[in-house]
Every structure is written in structure tokens, then in C-alpha cells.
């Protein structure tokens, strides 16, 4: 996915700041011509990561936009349990876990960096042919 543009947002974490993140995602979805449901999926993925990752400090979300879609990186999330869950085996059918939620709403995800207990989670959402 060749990168054309990059947006980076560092924000405090908490319900009162979620609107800021959603607005940025809305703008990105507009630029990429994502469908309303794709925007909603991407917002949900980021929201769940921030909620389950339990960050205590500001988090940086970077977006790399290309014609093919958007790649987001969310971190640092200091949560070893989260890293284990995201890197572990596929959850059994019928179990509702964060990996299952992410695999449903984005095209791919992964833990990109784990150092000193910090991790950055990568999310990719492809532009669906309209």
C-alpha cells in the first residue's frame, strides 16, 4: 500500500477526547471516500483499542493514507495482557474477544512494536470498491 499522506494526532485519552478522534477519522473517511459503515468500523476499532488498552498517558494515532486505504498505528499502549491477546491464537468460535472484534471491523491488525512494555497496534482498512 504506497503511502501518499500522513496524519498524526497525539491526544489525551478519555471519553471527552473520543470526539476529537472520531472527527479526524470522519475527515479521513471523506478523503478516501469510505462508506459510512467503513468509517464506523474504523472508529470502533480505534475506540476499542483505546478502551481495552487502558493507556494512562496521551496516545498517538498516526494515519497513513493511500488510494488503497488507511493504515493506523495506535500507541503507546502499556498492557502486556493486551499484547498477548492480540498476538495469541485465533479465539475459538463463539468467544467475543478484542481480536475477534478487530478482525471483524478492520482488514488486518497486528502488534507492531513491543518494547519496555509499550506496544503499538497497527490497523489497516482497505477502500472497498464502490
Amino acid at each position: 500500500m504506497p503511502v501518499a499522506d500522513r496524519i498524526e494526532l497525539t491526544t489525551p485519552v478519555g471519553r471527552s477526547w473520543e470526539a476529537v478522534i472520531r472527527m479526524v477519522l470522519g475527515g479521513i473517511a471523506d478523503r478516501l471516500d469510505l462508506g459510512f459503515d467503513q468509517l464506523d468500523d474504523l472508529q470502533l476499532a480505534v475506540e476499542r483499542l483505546l478502551a481495552e488498552g487502558d493507556p494512562h498517558d496521551p496516545v498517538t494515532i498516526s494515519f497513513e493514507l493511500s488510494q488503497g486505504g488507511v493504515r493506523a498505528r495506535v500507541g503507546p499502549l502499556r498492557d502486556a495482557a493486551l499484547a498477548d491477546a492480540l498476538q495469541g491464537p485465533e479465539p475459538p468460535p463463539g468467544e467475543l474477544t478484542l481480536p475477534r472484534i478487530l478482525s471483524t471491523v478492520v482488514d488486518s491488525y497486528g502488534v507492531e512494536e513491543v518494547a519496555d512494555g509499550h506496544l503499538v497496534v497497527r490497523l489497516e482498512k482497505l477502500v472497498r470498491a464502490q
Binding site: A81, L96, L98
Partner: peptide
Amino acid sequence: TDDRASLEPAL
């Protein structure tokens, strides 16, 4: 902490 990524118990 152990089950943070699993929402199953609350489902």
C-alpha cells in the same frame, strides 16, 4: 488484567 481482552464473561 488477565481477561481484559476477553469480553466473554459479560456477554
